Amino acid sequence: MSRTLQRLTTYGFVMIGALASIFPLYYMVVGSFQLKADSAFSGLVPRPGNLGLTNYRDVDKAISLLPSLANSAIFTLGTVVLTIVVGLPAGYALARLRFPGKTAVAAGLILVLALPFQVMMIPLYILVVRDYGLADNFLGMILPFAVNATAVLIFRQFFVALPDELFDAAHIDGAGELKTLMLVAAPLTKPAIITASVITFIGPWNEFLWPFLITKKHSMQPLAVSLGEYVSTNAATATNPYGVILAGACVLAVPVIVLFLVAQRYFTSAALGSGVKE
């Protein structure tokens, strides 16, 4: 009886935590469809007569959702691709190669994770804008995020978990390190690639500060920046300001949620793989 009670208590706490986590998302979706803002507790239950797509039309008219989404996609996908191209061989080198300073490099990656981006923002801005002249340029947005320490560590851990016999067999067959990476190791990294891609995707997709600093043309701004500027300047003039803001937030959140749901099973696969060492 006590075990059953303990199990029910555990499930109860889990359900409360899950509901507390989902509630803001639910509130955002319901509020984005409300024609008139209803902040009362009863407003949590949507009334059919107060629902519509007006808020989405208003935010689209104000900031042009499709071009802003396209800018976000270019910025984010460019960052993800460069992160994988750089992170995969870097993780392999840290896991499988022996070279002077290897421990220091791994420690440096952890140190980079501990530093907030704002600490490096001013020197990055001077370097990218003044020295390289990449203001209002997708390359200028992407470069500071092209090397992701988290992705490198994910690949490193994945390669460490692979059996040594796999690499020894490739070396016995005469394969060098590059050939071993491309033909033996890389084809096995699908779970790690997807995990690193999703984690990398979330940062640039939601990033506001760096694109805001480096882009002055509205035609170059990602959705997060366009929505932020709209909230600070024009949202108050809308019929339902909160509804318009929540509609924009929903559009910004949907791609991340869809990507996570599609790739969720690979997180489990990557976690299991990193915990097994033959």
Rank of each mutant, 00 (worst) to 15 (best):
Y11P: 10
F13K: 01
I16D: 09
G17D: 06
L19V: 15
I22K: 13
I22H: 08
F23S: 11
L25K: 08
Y27Q: 00
V30N: 01
Q34W: 01
L35W: 04
D38G: 02
S39I: 05
A40V: 00
F41Y: 00
L44K: 03
L44D: 00
G49W: 12
L51T: 06
L51N: 04
G52W: 05
G52A: 02
R57I: 05
D58P: 02
D58V: 13
D58Q: 14
A62C: 08
I63F: 10
S64Y: 15
L77P: 00
L82Y: 03
T83R: 01
A95P: 12
L97A: 11
F99C: 08
P100K: 15
G101D: 12
G101Y: 05
K102F: 06
K102P: 07
V105Q: 02
G108L: 03
G108C: 04
I110H: 08
L113C: 13
L113D: 09
A114M: 15
A114Q: 13
L115G: 11
L115S: 12
P116A: 07
F117P: 09
M120D: 11
M121Q: 14
I122Q: 13
I122K: 12
P123F: 08
L124Q: 11
I126T: 11
L134M: 15
L139Y: 08
I142V: 15
V147S: 11
A149I: 15
F155Q: 00
F155A: 02
Q157R: 14
F158Y: 15
V160N: 14
A161D: 11
L166F: 07
L166K: 05
L166E: 03
F167A: 02
D168F: 05
A169K: 12
A169M: 13
D173E: 14
G174H: 12
G174C: 11
M182R: 13
L183V: 12
L183T: 14
A185Y: 02
A186C: 13
L188E: 08
L188D: 09
T189C: 15
I199G: 01
E207W: 06
L209D: 04
W210K: 03
L213Q: 14
I214T: 15
K216I: 13
K217P: 04
L223Q: 05
L223D: 00
S226K: 14
L227E: 02
S232V: 10
A236Y: 04
T239F: 01
P241C: 05
G243E: 02
G248P: 06
L252N: 05
A253G: 04
A253K: 07
I257C: 09
F260Q: 06
A263S: 15
Q264I: 10
Q264H: 15
Q264V: 08
Y266S: 12
A270Y: 08
G273L: 10
K277G: 06
E278Y: 04
